[in-house]
Structures are given as structure tokens and as C-alpha cells.
Design a binder for these strands. Sequence first.
DNA 1: GCAGGGTCCTGACATTTGTCACCCAGGAGG
DNA 2: CCTCCTGGGTGACAAATGTCAGGACCCTGC
Lengths: 205, 205
Amino acid sequence: MSGPLIRLLLADDQALVRGALAALLDLEPDLSVVAEVATGDQVLAAAQAHHPDVALIDVEMPGMDGIETTRALKQDRPETRVLIVTTFGRPGYLRRALQAGADGFVVKDTPARQLADAVRRVHAGLRVVDADLAADSLVAGDSPLTARESEVLRAGRDGASVAAIAGRLYLSEGTVRNHLSSAIGKTGSANRAEAIRVADRNGWL
Amino acid sequence: MSGPLIRLLLADDQALVRGALAALLDLEPDLSVVAEVATGDQVLAAAQAHHPDVALIDVEMPGMDGIETTRALKQDRPETRVLIVTTFGRPGYLRRALQAGADGFVVKDTPARQLADAVRRVHAGLRVVDADLAADSLVAGDSPLTARESEVLRAGRDGASVAAIAGRLYLSEGTVRNHLSSAIGKTGSANRAEAIRVADRNGWL
DNA sequence: GCAGGGTCCTGACATTTGTCACCCAGGAGG
DNA sequence: CCTCCTGGGTGACAAATGTCAGGACCCTGC
């Protein structure tokens, strides 16, 4: 095989990591990094300009996050393969990434040598998913939270008071307390703070 | 210049990032990565076995963290230069890293091409510190929290209740509430959750 | 049409949290 | 010696939080 090079686009907000990944992948004779961007918003333009075969996208980015970016990219250029690369193995991330059209999902503590292989597999049309994470994902299941509940939890992430959350979301304090109470129950927590931690860790926010 | 190669040791818990950094640095003709480890505990043994000139150490690692590791390494092999590489630009990290004997401090969103230079400078005996971060560090100042206060905040990180914290630290609930209240005041927060966020962000925990 | 779910609101209530005034060591300095 | 100051601890009080029972509205699916 190994006809033309596989063209890659890298999206990661940490310049050092991005550059290092580029160095790593450019070592492979059949891979070539044709574009690097730091935020999700820049991905579409870069893809249109450089028509990569595979895009490596970090989930955690300022502005448009990796999931939204994937969705937008898949809509605009469906032939582009998307490989999500992320620090945190949140089960919810995996599910949402796949729903958004991602072709692969790799966490940042997989061995470096496997990354090039993952890229080649994705390029060949295969799905690449971290095995442990897939198992966790099945166990964790889908988010039990309603849209409002997760919204309220999100608004409380920075430690905002009930009154502050209510103001931010244009709700009454009583309603906010109800949603919080419900979320606390569903997450099996004793606390608003703990509920936020649990939901965040599972990627439900 | 460019006599012998500069020998490097990499310590980072994310295998992918570690491998990628190795690839990046090995591209430089005067640098050579002689050892890679995933945790702080392994740094000492690896340093003794491979006697690197410069150690690149991530602050966030399971087990012994980057600060402690730096201190231990500097005590065991003072001639080894230490360059701290970290995701988060917490002012407190910088201060503590320097106190522990680090020779340089680089955040992961500096451009990739500057990393090799930072390594060379540190090897030459210079200090390398991110300018923005140094400024922040001066502004943020030293931690205003007493030992007990930060301990109580640390114990409350996971959203534990006052009673739980008190149990964990063998204190009365009233005392815990006082420490919390004091910490809330010192951090200018309205909340325990917010106080924890502020203290954590500044590296005071 | 009707049941069921989700959202939003209200009001009442027990518990938890945050604040405050006060007390007790133990150094530092007069 | 005594006083001042700081970190640490206690108890009482007010405010915020979490729980519960209701009731109204709007969808969606049977």
C-alpha cells in the first residue's frame, strides 16, 4: 500500500503538545502534518484550505470544543476522518464524540507508538476506540440528567450560590433548588458540590 | 559549542505526550532523550541509571508530584538541571518549584520551538521562567492561608460536608467552620466551593 | 382524549453552612 | 513579670441549602 501520504490536521490548544505530536507523527514516512490549529473555530477554515485526510482533535479546547468541532467538520467535509485525542477518559465524552461522527477516540496515556497506527486505521475506514474506556462507557450509561438539571449544575460549577444560579438562568430560587435536589438524588451524592464532581467526571455536563 | 550531546530525562504521566516530546526533542542534533518515566517515584532511579544533564518534569503526576520529585532529585544529584513543564500556570506552582530547586518553568502552551532553547539555556546554567507567569506570581503573592486553613480546604475538595472534614481531620465541626470562614474571607469568596477554587487555582493547596 | 414526563413555580421545613464574640495556649517583646 | 498577638478551639445565631408536597403548563405518544 502506501500510495500517497496521509494528510493530517492537528487541533490542540497546548502549543507544546501540538508541536510535539506533529514531530512524532511527521517521523512516520507515510504521514504528513499539513495544518496545526489551536482552537476549534479554526478547524473548518484550515480543513478547507488544506483538505486533510484525518483530523486529530482535542476535546478540551477554548471556544468551540472538540465535540462541536467534530460535528461541524463532519457536516462540512464528511470524507474527513476524525480521531479524537483527549486527556480525560470521561465515558460521556466517548459517547458524545461518536454520536457527533468521530471515527476514533484515543486518550493521552496510550503509548506514543500506537498513535500512528490509530491514524492509519482511522484513515482506512476502521473505528478506533480505547477498550477500557468503551467498557466504562457501557457501565456508566447515558446521562440520567435532564437538560435543565445539567444546565443548573453547569451554572454552579464555580461555586455560585442558588440565588446566583437562579439569576443567571432566569429561574426562581425554588426551581433551582428543585433541580439541584433532583440531580443530587440521581448522582447518588449528598451535596451540590459532589453532584457536580460526579456529573463532570462522567462527562454529563 | 556543541561538544557532547545534552542528555535528557522526561517525566510525564501521559504516555502520548511524553513520547511526543521525546520525538520533538530528539529532532534536535544536540539533544538526546536517554530516559522516560511516567511517575515521580521512578525519576530518582532513572537518573541514577542514566545520569541525564537535564530533567523535564511535569508537575501533575500520580504518586510523588513534580515539586517533591524536584526536591528529591536536587538533593540526590545536584548537578542535574531541572526544567518543570506543566499544563497549568498556577503562580503557586512556580514559586514552590523554584523553592524546590527547579532551574526553569515552562507552561505547555508555549510554542514548541522554544522548548529546545529552554533546555539549552537551563543546561547552560541559566534560569528559564515564563514571563507572564512570573508577573502573576508577584501579584498573587504568597499564600495567605495558615497550614490548618489550607488543610481544611484540601479536605473539602471533593465536596465533603463540614462533618466529614471534621471527622477526617479529628477536629470539631465548629473549628472546621471557623477555618473555612477565615479562608473564605482571605480568598475574597462568598463560599466554601469558591474559596477552594481560588486557592487551588493559585496553587495554595 | 388522556397519561406521562419534563419544566416551572410556591410554600414549609429540617439541616447545613457561614459568622461572630469569646476563650485558651504559647511565643515575642516590652 | 506582663501584655500583645496569632493560631486554634467553642458555642450561639442567622442565612443558605436540601427535601418534600403540591399545582400548573406544555409536549409527546398511546
